[in-house]
């Protein structure tokens, strides 16, 4: 198609992409963290980034909503576009960008405020609602979508930090949903959770798939296999292989992918 010299095995492109990354390099000071990555992220799909620790999958994820801007020494080259618009163009403001591309982090990080205020925070700062009842609606629907409503509806005024780890993470997902994003980035969302909480979050990802594009970085191959439509395998800053999840896990094309999948390293 458009770029012939792609090192990545498999098809990196999709029919109608939501986000496109072309020849992306990321540097931390002198360190070359991401090396010439090209990939499309499709509409309403779940794509999983897998790979050994330090392979750059989280770094790449953070370039998708410019969270790496908060790190002084980080530098990004190449183009990343959301709906065809370059998000690193000088004229782009990160504020609306991040409202459209939300993020859930590795460790649950609720604000030390009430459950209600945690969810309402995003809509409030972005001026999404005009009245208290609208805000209440958003809070309720976000919590409902996160499957948390029934658990917390009677204690919305209690601190979010008082919930269990799994509940906190679903609260963070609800908080991301509340600003109605188009893409949700999840950076190892289950790594700090126990198996039961993990199952709940995975179930939630299944549910959300119908409305949002979800990019999930995960350490667990099983998780990638369970939740994602497509899978991308990163290795030492290179994007080695991209493909349908089933194909990646049953019949990987690249030797490195195969070694990783079969547990030769990781």
């Amino acid at each position: 198609m458009e770029n012939s010299n792609i090192k990545t095995t498999g098809n990196v492109f999709v029919e109608n992409p939501r986000m496109t990354a072309r020849n992306v390099d990321v540097y931390y000071g002198d360190k070359h963290a991401i090396n010439d990555v090209t990939i499309d992220i499709g509409e309403q799909e779940v794509i999983a980034f897998i790979g050994p620790s330090g392979c750059g999958k989280s770094t790449f994820l953070r370039t998708l909503n410019r969270m790496n801007d908060t790190i002084d020494i980080c530098r990004v080259e190449g183009t990343i576009a959301l709906d065809g618009q370059d998000i690193y163009a000088p004229s782009v403001d990160v504020v609306p960008l991040r409202a459209r591309v939300g993020m859930v982090f590795q460790k649950p990080n609720p604000f030390p405020k009430s459950i209600y205020d945690n969810i309402a925070y995003g809509p409030r700062i972005h001026g999404l609602t005009k009245s208290k009842s609208e805000l209440d609606d958003i809070v309720e629907s976000a919590l409902e979508k996160a499957g948390l409503w029934n658990e917390v509806k009677d204690r919305l005024d209690q601190p979010g930090t008082g919930l269990s780890g799994g509940q906190q993470q679903r609260l963070c997902i609800a908080r991301a949903i509340a600003v109605s994003p188009e893409v949700i980035l999840m950076d190892e969302p289950c790594s700090a959770l126990d198996p039961i909480a993990t199952a709940k979050v995975e179930e939630l990802i299944e549910e959300l798939k119908s409305q949002y594009t979800i990019v999930i970085v995960t350490h667990s191959m099983q998780q990638a296999a369970r939740v994602s439509d497509r899978t991308a395998y990163f290795h030492l800053g290179d994007l080695i292989e991209v493909g349908n999840t089933e194909q990646i896990f049953t019949n990987p094309s690249h030797q490195l992918t195969q070694d990783y999948i079969t547990g030769r390293f990781g």
Binding site: P96, R100, H126, G127, S141, V179, P181, E207, Q211
Partner: peptide, 23 residues
């Protein structure tokens, strides 16, 4: 798990309101 219709805003509407608040 419920799968009620989303009562909030559509992404397009949300984006428009975010843009409006920016100035």
């Amino acid at each position: 798990m419920t799968n009620k219709a989303f009562k909030g805003l559509s992404p397009q509407e949300a984006t428009a309101r975010v843009e409006a608040s920016l100035k």
